[in-house]
Design a protein around this nucleic acid. Structure first.
Lengths: 210, 210
DNA sequence: AAGATTATCTTGACGGCGTTCAGATTGGTG
DNA sequence: CACCAATCTGAACGCCGTCAAGATAATCTT
């Protein structure tokens, strides 16, 4: 009576609610953006989606599985951000540092989402599955390969990709630290700071090689 | 009566329990090692220490403050590990990679503790205070300075230290990932893998510089 | 030495959490 | 239309962080 169930809801609308899984993921992301990871309880997500606390259990085995879905979306969007950065690189054939900057900026702009993404990875002791297809990891490797066009050993490419990924992730987690504020302004902004750090990785690598 | 309060307990033994703050931190670390970060509840810590759930509140303002104390200890031990690695470097005057390996190995051997350490840092958006005195951060910077003995700009040293720290942290968080297992055995062990990744940072840095 | 003071710890309670289960409701199928 | 399976609700369990009130014990004052 009072509730009109014939709301034109996208396409599938499989049952009562109309794609509740989708709504739950959206609600989770909204809470993440608004109130941060600490406020992301399963009950709060259900509340935000307008269902009872037990409803999510018909779509996700537990809280971890919902977060997994959120993280999956995050990785997908990171892939897109990197692809865009690679396509519109301001250099000749896609500067490596543009990828790094895009990666860190994604983490800076979506801190809570990025945290969920990595927390899930750590709990599984594994990189996300996407990386084995055409995901972010492969994009980094391919860009590295483009630069070193005159033949690089497979293993060197793999190790360099891992190295780049570690540097990017490390910087992504620390970009917001207060201690770097002075250095950022001194270098003329956050992006300049990022590029500078990436470029100074070589100094460490050189000394690590003795 | 039944409880003998005159147990010779170290030195201070200020009140009823005898340095409960200390016992709480120890209990927290024991739980961390045994059952991981997910099991680290304030009530469990109190249980482990043999006191009521409310007792910790007379020594720590809340759970976060207890974790802060645990993290503080962790940073201190990391400092010591790095200092030891720096002192007993197998190279001429302290190889840079020995520091990196020591850092990552500390994280690998104390995964739960390392996670608490960094989670606390992220919540404060700041590196731990120790780093400003003679802590791990300064050790990395000093070692870098030793290698580049013929005068390096202050800012380059700072940026290289940050770069090294990011790489170390990134690798520390990923060292356990399953995807790297094959590569590790192929390179002859985990330590060789670590050194190889560190050395390949230069490849990324070179391309980042264009 | 005795009383007052202060720090420490316990008990009990509150609301929120993740999760489960029995039962109500509803969409799809024969 | 009757049935079935999928979906959702309501209530409950045990755990959590935290707080307030009271008991207990060490320290301080005199």
């Amino acid at each position: 009576m009072s509730t009109a169930p014939s709301e034109s809801r996208a396409e599938s609308r499989p049952y009562h609610h109309g794609d509740l899984s989708r709504a739950l993921v959206d609600a989770a992301r909204k809470i993440l953006e608004t109130d941060g990871p600490a406020a992301l309880s399963l009950r709060a997500v259900a509340r935000e989606a307008g269902v009872s606390p037990a409803a999510p259990y018909h779509h996700f085995k537990d809280k971890a599985e919902l977060l997994e879905a959120v993280a999956h979306e995050g990785w997908h969007e990171l892939d897109e951000a990197l692809a865009k950065a690679r396509a519109s690189a301001d250099g000749d054939h896609g500067r490596m540092s543009d990828l790094g900057v895009a990666y860190v900026c994604f983490a800076r702009d979506n801190p809570a989402l990025y945290r969920v993404m990595y927390d899930r990875s750590r709990d599984k002791d594994a990189l996300p599955d996407q990386m084995k297809e055409g995901g972010a990891y492969c994009q980094v490797r391919d860009t590295l390969a483009e630069h070193a066009d005159n033949g690089v050993a497979e293993i060197d490419l793999e190790l360099a990709t891992i190295a780049a990924w570690c540097a990017g992730h490390g910087l992504a987690e620390m970009i917001g630290f207060k201690q770097f504020a002075a250095l950022k302004t001194q270098l003329g902004g956050e992006e300049a700071f990022l590029r500078a750090v990436f470029e100074h990785l070589g100094m460490f690598a050189k000394f690590a090689r003795d």
